[in-house]
């Protein structure tokens, strides 16, 4: 029934005491889609992502990730998703190869598979020469690409990227998006949070969060048209302002 959806949530809510971080979120993400989650700091996008990736348990509501129930089948979900945190979260004191071995290892991949696949990945990223260098010595852009490759190393159905392009220059960001497109073409669903408005235009569809609620959802084109704006920046300001001041 929900076979076309990578993520489907109904009234997903998270409360911290009296504060409602996510208020009745209902939305779907299609398989193979690049789905952007936008919002100001504190709008609840990170909380939403944490619930979807299993880091936080929801207060109420339901969600299905890769057709698995978020409450009952969390173990299966874990095997089928990848996650890349804001800080890229590689071990600086391990080499590139050691990082790959470690993260692939905790997903239960066999040594043989890790060896074969890491060769492909390292060649794709053009990191052959740096293979045995410490990750700490790599420029941020390389770390970012490596972190992404490691997040999808175990072939997840969905990858969650938490503000993946923070702190890197526009050229590197563009390169990173190429990498995301390549993976999406292979059928990977990409779910990312960002507050770079120009970047949101690269997404197939986006959702904008304001004050814990889902304020708008649609393709960038749809959102621009319905708000009669020329850029996502204007759309975002209108929606965020509207919620705050009206």
């Amino acid at each position: 029934m929900s076979n076309n959806f990578a993520i489907k949530t109904i009234d997903l809510t998270k409360k911290f005491g009296n504060f409602t971080a996510c208020d009745n979120l209902t939305f779907e993400v299609h398989k193979g889609e690049i789905f952007g989650f936008l919002g100001a700091n504190g709008a609840g996008k990170t909380t939403a992502m944490k619930m979807l990736s299993g880091l936080l348990s929801p207060t109420s509501g339901t969600a299905k990730i890769a057709d698995y129930d978020i409450y009952k089948e969390s173990e299966k979900i874990k095997k089928n998703i990848g996650y890349m945190s804001q800080k890229f979260s590689l071990y600086d004191d391990l080499t590139i190869q050691e990082n790959i071995n470690f993260f692939a290892g905790i997903y239960g991949l066999s040594n043989k598979l890790i060896k074969e696949k890491s060769e492909v990945v390292i060649n794709e990223l053009d990191l052959k020469k740096q293979q045995n260098k410490l990750v700490g010595s790599l420029p941020l852009g390389w770390k970012q690409k490596l972190a992404f490759s490691i997040a999808i190393f175990h072939n997840p159905a969905i990858v969650f990227l938490d503000e993946p392009t923070g702190g890197v220059d526009p050229v590197t960001r563009r390169q990173f998006w190429d990498l995301i497109y390549q993976s999406a073409e292979r059928g990977l669903t990409v779910f990312l949070t960002t507050h770079y408005m120009d970047e949101s235009e690269y997404c197939n569809r986006i959702a904008i969060m304001a004050n814990g609620k889902l304020a708008a959802i649609g393709t960038p084109k749809e959102l621009k048209e319905s708000n009669s704006s020329s850029s996502m920046n204007d759309v975002f300001i209108q929606i965020a302002r509207g919620k705050n001041y009206v």
Partner: peptide, 10 residues
């Protein structure tokens, strides 16, 4: 942030 990555993993 690697703890998050570990907690997401199986």
């Amino acid at each position: 942030g690697s703890m998050e990555v570990l907690l997401v993993s199986p």
